[in-house]
Amino acid sequence: MPGKSFIHKMDARAKILLLIVYIVFIFLCYNFISLAVMTAFTVLVIALTKISFIKYLKSLKVILVIIILTGILNLFYGSGEVLWEWWMIKLTTGGISNYFFVIIRISILMMVSSALTYTTSPTDLTDAIERLLKPLSFFHVQVHEIAMMMTIALRFIPVLLEETDKIMNAQKARGADMESGNIFQRVKALIPVLIPLFVSSFRRANDLAMAMECRCYNGGKNRTRMKILHYSVTDLIALVFSAVMFVGVILCNLYFPNFV
């Protein structure tokens, strides 16, 4: 989503790097106070993107099943006072606090990741990944090729989705039944969709390769870029700010070791 907020203005590389550090720290939170610090930080980031909170809640919907499952698993792995017991299953105070801890942890993780994807264009993102992985080319990793593949994949996802839809409708018009039967029958019913999809993707790939050749693509040698990524004061502010947060997390971990 385009925008002009503080987070939008940050360099994509800085955003990716900070996200990685953020993920590490989210798993370094040992107690509720450090988690509260992280949550506050997350809320601040979300507020700074100026994108409605509902969007972020929608991003959570995608991983709702994972949140619930991990939550329930953690519910029964805890020590402390036993509140309820049935056969092998024990519900403890520790379990309940684990439950909330994990749910909050996953939720804020997802929201901050969404903040990255919402505020950065796919091209900026792939571009940033290409720059960040550059050192790997020393080990003969084809960094440019990887980035190019990502760009093309992102570009063609909507195209192929639309095509799948068309093929499905075409097969339905010929009397294909895709909505009934057990799982095996349904998977089998997908074959007449997948085969034409494959064939047409190869045709598209062929066309695209030709179009790229027409525009003098030669595998990234002597390539220049229209948009040059550069770090700015914005990134420095973000870095300082994040550093303060992360130190806060460490301090909270140290000073309240038992506050779980």
């Binding site: 091209t123 760009t151 195209v159 525009r215 003098c216 030669n218 002597n222 390539r223 229209m226």
Partner: peptide
């Protein structure tokens, strides 16, 4: 050369980035 299928010759996910693609390949300054 401009080809028949408009979908299959657009490389990037943003209009201006795609237009820039050819220039980037031939090494024009930013």
């Amino acid at each position: 050369l401009v080809l028949q299928n408009p979908d299959n010759q657009i490389v990037a996910g943003i209009v201006e980035e795609d237009v820039a693609f050819g220039c980037e390949n031939i090494g024009i300054p930013s």
